[in-house]
Design a protein around this nucleic acid. Structure first.
Lengths: 141, 141
DNA sequence: CTGGATGCAAATGTTTTGCAGCATG
DNA sequence: CATGCTGCAAAACATTTGCATCCAG
């Protein structure tokens, strides 16, 4: 039999240890290095690929820049700050009844959904309204 | 004064002429060539960038592979076939009341939203159920 | 002339692939 | 010792940038 896969488990451990909701490949690779492991980029990519297929990770549907990943668990939607790019999880905002209505209207079968709300995090909202006009806002994440 | 921008207008014309709901950069550049214009890739990128800022185009939030763009207009959501990757527009499935509830629950201000439903287009559903187990489905788009 | 738009090329960034070596069952 | 994970390198793909040039005002 083959040798057991180290990297995927290290990735899961890293993400469970937390500190971040969504991770880029670069952040995962860096985190592994920092944890004393030293996985190659391609190994991390392959590990993430396997974990996605196994439904242990999910891709965060931001759709710009590098892809980001999170632990798969309870389904949730996301909200992202348009100013500082912070990301937060959110209870699902879609109702089954609306999805069923969309199925009837479109003729498609709907299996999953991905929702990203764009808005302002509390801090950016305060900074923007509050009159701090000099700054471009706090640093991201 | 500067010379007037040709490429952005050519892009808008191309997308209005239709034939496709969402366009990759490559498809846009190819479409311009086919139309007798011959815009460079970088010019197309810069044109799309400007059109995005001017809200004349919108990025389709698929988040995998090359980015895709569409004419900005009435807001709509998208549904995508997980089997053949076809994409269709859909009337918005989110209610203001749910967004306001999310604002109250999260403390964020919500400005926009992006929704992609994943499912099966009518044709793929028929092929999958119908028993045609040999094929991997019809070609995409 | 001037300033933004364009074309060309090259840099940058992200993801995927080929292949040899290695560690386990 | 066969299998599939790993590391290294390079390819493939996507996006952005620098710079010389062009052109309508």
């Amino acid at each position: 039999m083959p040798r057991p896969a180290r990297v995927p488990e290290q990735v899961i451990e890293l993400l469970q240890r937390g500190g971040r909701h969504a991770w880029t490949m670069e952040q995962i690779a860096g985190g592994l290095q920092a944890a004393g492991h030293q996985a190659d980029f391609s190994s991390v990519y392959r590990a993430v690929e396997r974990l996605l297929r196994a439904q242990r990770l999910a891709r965060v549907p931001l759709g710009d820049g590098a892809a980001q990943y999170e632990l798969a668990g309870e389904h949730h939607d996301h909200v992202r700050c348009v100013r500082c790019k912070a990301l937060a999880a959110l209870e699902c905002v879609l109702h089954d009844s609306d999805l069923r209505a969309a199925e009837r209207a479109s003729g498609w079968s709907i299996l999953e959904h991905r929702v990203v709300l764009d808005g302002l995090c509390p801090r950016c909202r305060a900074e923007q309204q509050g009159g701090t006009r000099r700054s471009h806002g706090h640093p991201p994440d």
